[in-house]
Nucleic acid binder design. Structure first.
Lengths: 187, 187
DNA sequence: CCCATAACTAAGCAACTGATTAGTTATAAA
DNA sequence: TTTATAACTAATCAGTTGCTTAGTTATGGG
Protein backbone atom coordinates (compact mmCIF):
# COMPACT_ATOMS: atom_id res chain seq x y z
CA UNK A 1 0.00 0.00 0.00
CA UNK A 2 2.69 2.44 0.92
CA UNK A 3 6.39 3.07 1.04
CA UNK A 4 8.63 1.11 3.42
CA UNK A 5 10.75 2.74 6.13
CA UNK A 6 14.22 3.43 4.83
CA UNK A 7 15.75 3.07 8.29
CA UNK A 8 15.76 0.57 11.14
CA UNK A 9 14.20 2.06 14.27
CA UNK A 10 16.33 -0.05 16.61
CA UNK A 11 19.51 1.04 14.85
CA UNK A 12 18.78 4.76 14.88
CA UNK A 13 17.57 4.51 18.48
CA UNK A 14 20.90 3.09 19.58
CA UNK A 15 22.72 5.96 17.90
CA UNK A 16 20.45 8.45 19.64
CA UNK A 17 21.08 6.74 22.98
CA UNK A 18 24.85 7.13 22.69
CA UNK A 19 24.43 10.79 21.78
CA UNK A 20 22.19 11.51 24.77
CA UNK A 21 24.50 9.48 26.99
CA UNK A 22 27.54 11.49 25.89
CA UNK A 23 26.00 14.94 25.89
CA UNK A 24 22.95 14.93 28.15
CA UNK A 25 19.36 15.70 27.24
CA UNK A 26 19.32 19.46 26.75
CA UNK A 27 22.69 19.72 25.01
CA UNK A 28 21.60 17.16 22.42
CA UNK A 29 19.66 19.13 19.81
CA UNK A 30 17.31 17.72 17.23
CA UNK A 31 19.79 18.76 14.53
CA UNK A 32 22.53 16.74 16.23
CA UNK A 33 20.12 13.81 16.45
CA UNK A 34 19.26 14.14 12.75
CA UNK A 35 22.93 14.00 11.83
CA UNK A 36 23.85 11.15 14.19
CA UNK A 37 20.77 9.03 13.47
CA UNK A 38 21.13 9.69 9.75
CA UNK A 39 17.46 10.48 9.25
CA UNK A 40 15.33 13.59 8.83
CA UNK A 41 13.74 15.31 11.80
CA UNK A 42 10.33 14.41 10.43
CA UNK A 43 11.22 10.72 10.65
CA UNK A 44 12.38 11.11 14.25
CA UNK A 45 9.08 12.71 15.17
CA UNK A 46 7.13 10.12 13.15
CA UNK A 47 8.83 7.24 14.99
CA UNK A 48 9.20 8.64 18.51
CA UNK A 49 6.67 11.48 18.84
CA UNK A 50 8.97 14.15 20.18
CA UNK A 51 12.38 14.67 21.76
CA UNK A 52 11.20 13.52 25.19
CA UNK A 53 9.57 10.42 23.67
CA UNK A 54 12.80 9.56 21.91
CA UNK A 55 14.74 10.02 25.14
CA UNK A 56 12.38 7.76 27.09
CA UNK A 57 12.99 5.03 24.51
CA UNK A 58 16.74 5.61 24.82
CA UNK A 59 16.54 5.13 28.59
CA UNK A 60 14.63 1.88 28.06
CA UNK A 61 17.33 0.68 25.69
CA UNK A 62 20.02 1.71 28.17
CA UNK A 63 18.37 -0.39 30.87
CA UNK A 64 18.36 -3.37 28.53
CA UNK A 65 22.05 -2.88 27.80
CA UNK A 66 22.96 -2.68 31.46
CA UNK A 67 20.90 -5.76 32.28
CA UNK A 68 23.81 -8.10 31.52
CA UNK A 69 25.69 -6.52 34.41
CA UNK A 70 22.81 -6.52 36.86
CA UNK A 71 22.11 -10.15 35.93
CA UNK A 72 25.58 -11.14 37.14
CA UNK A 73 24.90 -9.35 40.42
CA UNK A 74 21.49 -10.96 40.76
CA UNK A 75 22.87 -14.44 40.19
CA UNK A 76 25.95 -14.04 42.37
CA UNK A 77 26.00 -16.34 45.38
CA UNK A 78 28.97 -14.46 46.72
CA UNK A 79 28.10 -11.68 49.16
CA UNK A 80 29.98 -8.39 48.72
CA UNK A 81 32.31 -9.59 45.96
CA UNK A 82 29.24 -9.75 43.69
CA UNK A 83 28.55 -6.08 44.38
CA UNK A 84 32.20 -5.17 44.02
CA UNK A 85 32.21 -6.86 40.64
CA UNK A 86 29.15 -4.81 39.73
CA UNK A 87 31.05 -1.62 40.59
CA UNK A 88 33.93 -2.56 38.30
CA UNK A 89 31.70 -3.86 35.51
CA UNK A 90 29.63 -0.73 35.66
CA UNK A 91 32.62 1.59 35.39
CA UNK A 92 33.90 -0.50 32.49
CA UNK A 93 30.48 -0.29 30.84
CA UNK A 94 30.18 3.47 31.35
CA UNK A 95 33.37 4.22 29.46
CA UNK A 96 33.58 1.37 26.98
CA UNK A 97 35.98 2.08 24.10
CA UNK A 98 35.74 5.81 24.59
CA UNK A 99 35.56 8.74 26.94
CA UNK A 100 33.66 7.85 30.12
CA UNK A 101 30.09 9.02 29.87
CA UNK A 102 28.98 8.07 33.37
CA UNK A 103 25.55 6.53 33.73
CA UNK A 104 22.70 7.71 31.54
CA UNK A 105 20.25 7.28 34.42
CA UNK A 106 22.20 9.17 37.08
CA UNK A 107 23.34 11.77 34.55
CA UNK A 108 19.67 12.38 33.82
CA UNK A 109 18.58 12.63 37.46
CA UNK A 110 21.42 15.05 37.90
CA UNK A 111 20.60 17.16 34.88
CA UNK A 112 16.91 17.55 35.72
CA UNK A 113 17.15 17.51 39.50
CA UNK A 114 14.55 15.96 41.76
CA UNK A 115 12.32 19.03 42.00
CA UNK A 116 11.35 18.89 38.34
CA UNK A 117 9.26 15.71 38.34
CA UNK A 118 8.94 14.14 34.92
CA UNK A 119 8.35 10.68 33.54
CA UNK A 120 12.08 10.60 32.92
CA UNK A 121 13.26 11.37 36.47
CA UNK A 122 10.64 9.19 38.17
CA UNK A 123 11.68 6.32 35.97
CA UNK A 124 15.34 6.97 36.70
CA UNK A 125 14.81 7.12 40.46
CA UNK A 126 12.88 3.85 40.49
CA UNK A 127 15.76 2.22 38.62
CA UNK A 128 18.14 3.38 41.35
CA UNK A 129 15.83 1.78 43.92
CA UNK A 130 15.91 -1.42 41.90
CA UNK A 131 19.71 -1.54 42.05
CA UNK A 132 19.56 -0.89 45.80
CA UNK A 133 17.31 -3.93 46.22
CA UNK A 134 19.80 -6.05 44.28
CA UNK A 135 22.54 -4.85 46.65
CA UNK A 136 20.34 -5.66 49.64
CA UNK A 137 19.63 -9.17 48.41
CA UNK A 138 23.29 -9.81 47.76
CA UNK A 139 24.30 -8.57 51.20
CA UNK A 140 21.62 -10.82 52.71
CA UNK A 141 23.59 -13.85 51.48
CA UNK A 142 25.65 -13.25 54.59
CA UNK A 143 23.09 -14.60 57.06
CA UNK A 144 24.91 -13.20 60.09
CA UNK A 145 23.87 -9.63 59.27
CA UNK A 146 20.78 -8.13 60.90
CA UNK A 147 18.22 -6.05 59.00
CA UNK A 148 19.53 -2.73 60.28
CA UNK A 149 23.04 -3.51 59.06
CA UNK A 150 21.70 -4.71 55.71
CA UNK A 151 19.77 -1.47 55.22
CA UNK A 152 22.67 0.75 56.27
CA UNK A 153 25.09 -1.02 53.99
CA UNK A 154 22.66 -1.04 51.05
CA UNK A 155 22.09 2.69 51.56
CA UNK A 156 25.82 3.30 51.72
CA UNK A 157 26.48 1.31 48.56
CA UNK A 158 23.72 2.85 46.49
CA UNK A 159 24.96 6.36 47.30
CA UNK A 160 28.50 5.23 46.54
CA UNK A 161 27.70 3.78 43.12
CA UNK A 162 25.30 6.54 42.10
CA UNK A 163 27.91 9.12 43.09
CA UNK A 164 30.71 7.27 41.40
CA UNK A 165 28.62 6.85 38.26
CA UNK A 166 28.58 10.61 37.93
CA UNK A 167 32.12 11.37 39.06
CA UNK A 168 33.88 8.48 37.29
CA UNK A 169 33.87 10.48 34.09
CA UNK A 170 35.95 13.24 35.63
CA UNK A 171 38.54 11.17 37.53
CA UNK A 172 41.37 9.00 36.14
CA UNK A 173 40.78 5.27 36.24
CA UNK A 174 43.34 4.55 38.98
CA UNK A 175 41.65 7.03 41.30
CA UNK A 176 38.30 5.39 40.66
CA UNK A 177 39.84 1.96 41.39
CA UNK A 178 41.34 3.23 44.64
CA UNK A 179 37.92 4.52 45.60
CA UNK A 180 36.20 1.20 44.87
CA UNK A 181 38.79 -0.82 46.77
CA UNK A 182 38.44 1.41 49.81
CA UNK A 183 34.66 1.34 49.61
CA UNK A 184 34.58 -2.40 50.30
CA UNK A 185 37.09 -2.48 53.14
CA UNK A 186 34.50 -2.34 55.86
CA UNK A 187 31.45 -3.99 54.35
CA UNK B 1 31.90 63.92 34.41
CA UNK B 2 29.50 61.05 33.94
CA UNK B 3 26.64 59.14 35.44
CA UNK B 4 27.20 56.83 38.45
CA UNK B 5 26.47 53.09 38.40
CA UNK B 6 22.94 52.47 39.67
CA UNK B 7 23.89 49.03 40.99
CA UNK B 8 26.49 47.42 43.22
CA UNK B 9 28.66 44.94 41.32
CA UNK B 10 29.29 42.76 44.37
CA UNK B 11 25.56 42.55 45.08
CA UNK B 12 24.50 41.60 41.57
CA UNK B 13 27.41 39.14 41.31
CA UNK B 14 26.20 37.26 44.36
CA UNK B 15 22.73 36.98 42.84
CA UNK B 16 24.23 35.67 39.61
CA UNK B 17 26.30 33.13 41.55
CA UNK B 18 23.23 31.64 43.24
CA UNK B 19 21.46 31.40 39.90
CA UNK B 20 24.37 29.60 38.24
CA UNK B 21 24.75 27.40 41.30
CA UNK B 22 21.09 26.39 41.20
CA UNK B 23 20.71 25.92 37.46
CA UNK B 24 24.13 25.32 35.94
CA UNK B 25 25.91 27.36 33.32
CA UNK B 26 24.05 26.56 30.10
CA UNK B 27 20.57 26.53 31.61
CA UNK B 28 21.09 30.00 33.06
CA UNK B 29 20.23 32.39 30.23
CA UNK B 30 21.18 36.02 30.01
CA UNK B 31 17.47 36.90 30.33
CA UNK B 32 17.29 34.96 33.61
CA UNK B 33 20.43 36.76 34.77
CA UNK B 34 18.92 40.12 33.83
CA UNK B 35 15.84 39.40 35.90
CA UNK B 36 17.70 37.93 38.91
CA UNK B 37 20.44 40.57 38.98
CA UNK B 38 17.90 43.34 38.43
CA UNK B 39 19.95 45.05 35.76
CA UNK B 40 19.93 45.30 31.97
CA UNK B 41 21.94 42.90 29.83
CA UNK B 42 24.05 45.81 28.66
CA UNK B 43 25.12 46.45 32.25
CA UNK B 44 26.03 42.78 32.73
CA UNK B 45 28.25 42.90 29.66
CA UNK B 46 29.70 46.28 30.69
CA UNK B 47 30.69 44.94 34.11
CA UNK B 48 31.70 41.37 33.32
CA UNK B 49 32.50 41.21 29.60
CA UNK B 50 30.37 38.23 28.66
CA UNK B 51 28.52 35.28 30.13
CA UNK B 52 31.70 33.26 30.66
CA UNK B 53 33.42 36.25 32.32
CA UNK B 54 30.52 36.63 34.68
CA UNK B 55 30.63 32.93 35.49
CA UNK B 56 34.36 33.04 36.22
CA UNK B 57 33.72 35.83 38.72
CA UNK B 58 30.92 33.78 40.26
CA UNK B 59 33.27 30.84 40.76
CA UNK B 60 35.80 33.16 42.44
CA UNK B 61 33.08 34.39 44.78
CA UNK B 62 32.01 30.82 45.47
CA UNK B 63 35.55 29.93 46.51
CA UNK B 64 35.61 32.87 48.89
CA UNK B 65 32.32 31.75 50.41
CA UNK B 66 33.53 28.20 50.91
CA UNK B 67 36.76 29.38 52.47
CA UNK B 68 35.26 29.53 55.96
CA UNK B 69 34.77 25.76 55.77
CA UNK B 70 38.18 24.93 54.34
CA UNK B 71 39.75 27.18 56.99
CA UNK B 72 38.29 25.00 59.74
CA UNK B 73 39.78 21.95 58.05
CA UNK B 74 43.13 23.64 57.59
CA UNK B 75 43.30 24.65 61.24
CA UNK B 76 42.05 21.37 62.66
CA UNK B 77 44.62 19.52 64.76
CA UNK B 78 42.37 16.52 64.84
CA UNK B 79 43.09 13.93 62.14
CA UNK B 80 40.06 12.44 60.36
CA UNK B 81 37.42 14.17 62.49
CA UNK B 82 38.52 17.42 60.87
CA UNK B 83 37.80 15.97 57.45
CA UNK B 84 34.56 14.42 58.59
CA UNK B 85 33.48 17.80 59.88
CA UNK B 86 34.36 19.23 56.47
CA UNK B 87 32.04 16.69 54.81
CA UNK B 88 29.14 17.68 57.05
CA UNK B 89 29.83 21.41 56.81
CA UNK B 90 30.07 21.17 53.08
CA UNK B 91 26.74 19.36 52.71
CA UNK B 92 25.16 21.94 55.01
CA UNK B 93 26.68 24.73 52.92
CA UNK B 94 25.54 23.23 49.63
CA UNK B 95 21.88 23.20 50.63
CA UNK B 96 21.66 26.12 53.04
CA UNK B 97 18.07 27.32 53.57
CA UNK B 98 16.90 25.81 50.33
CA UNK B 99 17.01 22.96 47.86
CA UNK B 100 20.48 21.37 47.73
CA UNK B 101 22.43 22.73 44.83
CA UNK B 102 25.51 20.55 45.20
CA UNK B 103 28.86 22.21 44.68
CA UNK B 104 29.26 24.90 42.05
CA UNK B 105 32.76 23.64 41.24
CA UNK B 106 31.95 19.95 40.83
CA UNK B 107 28.65 20.77 39.13
CA UNK B 108 30.66 22.75 36.60
CA UNK B 109 33.27 20.05 35.98
CA UNK B 110 30.40 17.70 35.49
CA UNK B 111 28.47 19.90 33.13
CA UNK B 112 31.42 20.66 30.88
CA UNK B 113 33.28 17.39 31.20
CA UNK B 114 37.04 17.09 31.21
CA UNK B 115 37.43 16.86 27.43
CA UNK B 116 36.23 20.44 26.89
CA UNK B 117 39.12 22.33 28.44
CA UNK B 118 38.24 25.85 29.41
CA UNK B 119 39.45 28.39 31.95
CA UNK B 120 36.46 27.33 33.98
CA UNK B 121 37.17 23.60 34.14
CA UNK B 122 40.92 23.97 34.65
CA UNK B 123 40.22 26.31 37.53
CA UNK B 124 37.69 23.92 38.97
CA UNK B 125 40.01 20.92 38.73
CA UNK B 126 42.85 22.77 40.46
CA UNK B 127 40.46 23.65 43.28
CA UNK B 128 39.70 19.96 43.73
CA UNK B 129 43.45 19.29 43.97
CA UNK B 130 43.69 21.99 46.60
CA UNK B 131 41.06 20.28 48.74
CA UNK B 132 42.89 16.96 48.30
CA UNK B 133 46.07 18.53 49.69
CA UNK B 134 44.12 19.79 52.72
CA UNK B 135 42.88 16.23 53.28
CA UNK B 136 46.42 14.92 52.94
CA UNK B 137 47.80 17.39 55.46
CA UNK B 138 45.05 16.58 57.93
CA UNK B 139 45.63 12.83 57.59
CA UNK B 140 49.33 13.42 58.13
CA UNK B 141 48.55 14.60 61.67
CA UNK B 142 48.43 10.90 62.43
CA UNK B 143 52.21 10.33 62.32
CA UNK B 144 51.88 6.55 62.28
CA UNK B 145 50.67 6.55 58.65
CA UNK B 146 53.13 6.00 55.83
CA UNK B 147 53.11 8.02 52.61
CA UNK B 148 51.41 5.32 50.58
CA UNK B 149 48.53 5.10 53.04
CA UNK B 150 48.24 8.89 53.16
CA UNK B 151 47.99 9.10 49.39
CA UNK B 152 45.48 6.26 49.09
CA UNK B 153 43.28 7.72 51.78
CA UNK B 154 43.50 11.24 50.36
CA UNK B 155 42.57 9.86 46.93
CA UNK B 156 39.68 7.96 48.40
CA UNK B 157 38.36 10.96 50.28
CA UNK B 158 38.61 13.40 47.39
CA UNK B 159 36.63 11.07 45.14
CA UNK B 160 34.14 10.55 47.96
CA UNK B 161 33.52 14.25 48.58
CA UNK B 162 33.53 15.25 44.92
CA UNK B 163 31.04 12.49 44.18
CA UNK B 164 28.91 13.30 47.18
CA UNK B 165 28.92 16.98 46.26
CA UNK B 166 27.13 16.10 43.06
CA UNK B 167 24.86 13.35 44.34
CA UNK B 168 23.89 15.00 47.64
CA UNK B 169 21.31 17.07 45.81
CA UNK B 170 19.43 14.01 44.64
CA UNK B 171 19.46 11.94 47.86
CA UNK B 172 17.58 12.58 51.12
CA UNK B 173 19.66 13.95 53.98
CA UNK B 174 19.59 10.76 56.09
CA UNK B 175 21.00 8.74 53.21
CA UNK B 176 23.79 11.27 52.78
CA UNK B 177 24.52 11.09 56.52
CA UNK B 178 24.60 7.29 56.42
CA UNK B 179 27.08 7.53 53.57
CA UNK B 180 29.35 9.95 55.40
CA UNK B 181 29.36 7.89 58.59
CA UNK B 182 30.28 4.75 56.67
CA UNK B 183 32.96 6.57 54.70
CA UNK B 184 34.99 7.21 57.85
CA UNK B 185 34.71 3.75 59.41
CA UNK B 186 37.94 2.53 57.93
CA UNK B 187 40.09 5.62 57.67
C1' DC C 1 24.27 76.65 33.44
C1' DC C 2 26.56 73.78 29.98
C1' DC C 3 28.11 69.66 28.02
C1' DA C 4 31.43 65.77 27.67
C1' DT C 5 30.96 61.37 29.29
C1' DA C 6 29.52 57.22 31.11
C1' DA C 7 25.35 54.54 32.52
C1' DC C 8 21.26 53.46 31.22
C1' DT C 9 16.91 51.50 28.12
C1' DA C 10 14.87 48.95 24.63
C1' DA C 11 15.03 47.24 20.28
C1' DG C 12 17.32 44.29 17.39
C1' DC C 13 20.94 40.99 15.49
C1' DA C 14 22.07 36.28 13.61
C1' DA C 15 22.17 31.73 15.12
C1' DC C 16 19.94 28.16 17.19
C1' DT C 17 16.00 25.54 19.57
C1' DG C 18 11.93 21.91 19.18
C1' DA C 19 8.45 21.09 16.15
C1' DT C 20 5.48 21.36 11.80
C1' DT C 21 4.25 22.01 7.15
C1' DA C 22 3.60 21.56 2.13
C1' DG C 23 5.09 19.07 -1.46
C1' DT C 24 7.45 14.88 -3.53
C1' DT C 25 8.53 9.94 -3.97
C1' DA C 26 8.23 5.05 -3.43
C1' DT C 27 5.33 1.11 -2.46
C1' DA C 28 1.97 -2.54 -2.80
C1' DA C 29 -2.90 -3.78 -3.13
C1' DA C 30 -6.52 -3.48 -6.68
C1' DT D 1 -0.94 0.10 -14.74
C1' DT D 2 -3.36 2.74 -11.62
C1' DT D 3 -3.88 4.79 -7.20
C1' DA D 4 -4.32 5.30 -2.21
C1' DT D 5 -1.13 5.83 1.27
C1' DA D 6 2.74 6.14 4.01
C1' DA D 7 7.69 7.65 4.01
C1' DC D 8 10.41 10.81 2.60
C1' DT D 9 12.75 15.96 1.74
C1' DA D 10 13.45 20.61 2.60
C1' DA D 11 11.67 24.79 3.90
C1' DT D 12 9.71 27.09 7.59
C1' DC D 13 7.41 28.14 12.05
C1' DA D 14 7.63 30.85 16.49
C1' DG D 15 10.45 31.12 20.43
C1' DT D 16 14.96 31.50 22.68
C1' DT D 17 19.93 32.01 22.84
C1' DG D 18 24.28 35.25 23.66
C1' DC D 19 25.39 39.57 22.41
C1' DT D 20 25.28 44.44 20.27
C1' DT D 21 23.70 48.79 18.92
C1' DA D 22 21.24 53.14 18.46
C1' DG D 23 19.30 56.34 21.20
C1' DT D 24 18.22 58.44 25.89
C1' DT D 25 19.28 59.97 30.62
C1' DA D 26 21.84 61.33 34.56
C1' DT D 27 26.16 63.19 36.45
C1' DG D 28 29.66 66.45 37.89
C1' DG D 29 33.79 69.35 36.42
C1' DG D 30 34.31 73.68 33.74
Amino acid sequence: MARKKQYNEAEVLEKAMFLFWSNGYETTSTRMLEKEMGINQFSIYASFGNKEGLFVECVKLYKQKIKSITDILEESKNPITGIKQYFYDFIEFSGKNEIPKGCLITNTINEFGTAKETVITNDAISFTQHIRSLFYNNLKLDVTKDIETLNKQADYLIVAIASLAVSSKIFPKELVNTYIEHTFINI
